[in-house]
Nucleic acid binder design. Sequence first.
DNA 1: CTCTGTGCAAAGCGTTTGCAAACGA
DNA 2: TCGTTTGCAAACGCTTTGCACAGAG
Lengths: 133, 133
Amino acid sequence: MNNFTDILRAHHLKATPQRLEIASTFYERGHVNIEELYETMLKKFNSISLATIYKNINLMIENAFIQEVKIPNAKSVYELTKEAHSHLVCDNCGHVEDLTLDLSSISALAAHETDFKINKANLVFSGLCKNCQ
Amino acid sequence: MNNFTDILRAHHLKATPQRLEIASTFYERGHVNIEELYETMLKKFNSISLATIYKNINLMIENAFIQEVKIPNAKSVYELTKEAHSHLVCDNCGHVEDLTLDLSSISALAAHETDFKINKANLVFSGLCKNCQ
DNA sequence: CTCTGTGCAAAGCGTTTGCAAACGA
DNA sequence: TCGTTTGCAAACGCTTTGCACAGAG
């Protein structure tokens, strides 16, 4: 199993009970938005504040423990930072899935067709997940 | 030249002076955020309200005259609705450029590797524009 | 003339900040 | 113990709403 205390410390974050639960939520769920995270946390900490959620999310982003995923026509979700990958979002239920694709040739093509020096490619597919089709 | 009155009417929008100026701004600038649009509008309508900007932006989105472009680590910009295309965003100056790329094979690949039925692919490249390199 | 749009002010909502008490190391 | 984190309440900034007047068709 994961040792969340060490994982947090590796990202220069003190291991408080709230942060351990946040980390655990990300490991279990993969992608969560602020509201879902707050609801989940409330089950374990009945007096947790949204301020605590926001402070931790922001700190975790600064320390590259998690990152934001912006989704067309929906709220942002957050996920653990890992190697670059693309996302699939279900238009019906909002489910988000990761997919590692090689975008180097399309990035090279984009660089070739414009005057940009390209750093990153952010790709989000929308559609219907297996359950919603 | 463009007849903005007719273009607006084609999208079921009455041609008010404010809307004509908004349309003209989009045609000239391509991509604008709310703040930039407000600043631009203020030059022509010294007592225009932000409420008017928001009401029109929302109405124009509903009527598919414009659409929102969500950008990682930056404010959304809006652009005229046109055929699907990708975006390049400069990390330094925020400049946004359009690029039409064929994403059908990568979409097919994504569909093949997952259980999603894919509808749209939203691709945003980040990097440095010609001026900022 | 009628209905819609505009501008203003107020309200709303998600997010951030300041502070005192609690807690991690 | 010392510096950080938490929870609360207040503040903030962006966006939306209600209303009276002006304007488009």
